[in-house]
Nucleic acid binder design. Sequence first.
DNA 1: GTAAATGCAAAGTTTTTGCCGCACA
DNA 2: TGTGCGGCAAAAACTTTGCATTTAC
Lengths: 147, 147
Amino acid sequence: MEINNQQIETMVTEFVTKSKELGLKVTPQRTAIYKELAKTDQHPSTEMIYKNIKDYFPNISLTTVYRTLETFEKHGLISVVNQLYNAARYDANLTPHHHIVCVECKKIEDIYDSSVNYTKIDNKIQDYEVVGYSVLFNGICSSCSDK
Amino acid sequence: MEINNQQIETMVTEFVTKSKELGLKVTPQRTAIYKELAKTDQHPSTEMIYKNIKDYFPNISLTTVYRTLETFEKHGLISVVNQLYNAARYDANLTPHHHIVCVECKKIEDIYDSSVNYTKIDNKIQDYEVVGYSVLFNGICSSCSDK
DNA sequence: GTAAATGCAAAGTTTTTGCCGCACA
DNA sequence: TGTGCGGCAAAAACTTTGCATTTAC
């Protein structure tokens, strides 16, 4: 799916407004980083964003991209697709179940709550042959919310 | 939730059987790694598993743990909780939507398929205050399945 | 006996941190 | 004119690879 120029401009305008509300400075680097992310639905990594910006903004630092994306995410301007990107986490329990991760301490727990249901899907979505799916809830665990 | 010794032994027995069926050698290291994962629902990282085993198996190598977990995962003996652990991936689209990732090439696409629905949940699961959730489908994209 | 698995060392990736200079409210 | 931001370098954290040795079958 393509995102057209007008949509991007709208998003950038909102980004500037929200940044000012949040007390974040709007710099050329930040605008470039936001725009790079707004113009694609490919969910790029930090490195990909950096490389794209380098073409027209050769002095930008990779560190800035890392720090800026983290700042944006912390303030809700963007979201991280893979909350648990820090390290691989494994599970020997192969029965279908869901997970909940604490956004503070990164602890993961299994969910067996019966209110959590997923509607049956067929094994074809868009151009993909689906081999599985997982539901990941984000939350704050009781010990972190106590703090 | 606790996993009792009998459950663990059953899992280890099945692990040995499946390994043999798959032509995988059952070594003391592999058994230790599997057991370490079977006895917890904490979804440990490679490092955590390594540290726990080190206590009673001081010679084990971190490399072995990495390689073994990858082998187990490839053969379906265990699963990886966070498919996209390689690098952080970002999204400027804040409207609720789901994702599908190609298990081969790691490409991510948005899902707007109306057959994908999630039943409404309240904002409390177990001890967590839920702030959001995401559904991640695993699949094989058309260009990868062509190969 | 042989192919597969392990351990060690080294290298490759991804991410974070410290420090200093710069710039915009 | 001070606080936040950016750039550079270094370090930290996580993961993979090459090679010689050992082991399970």
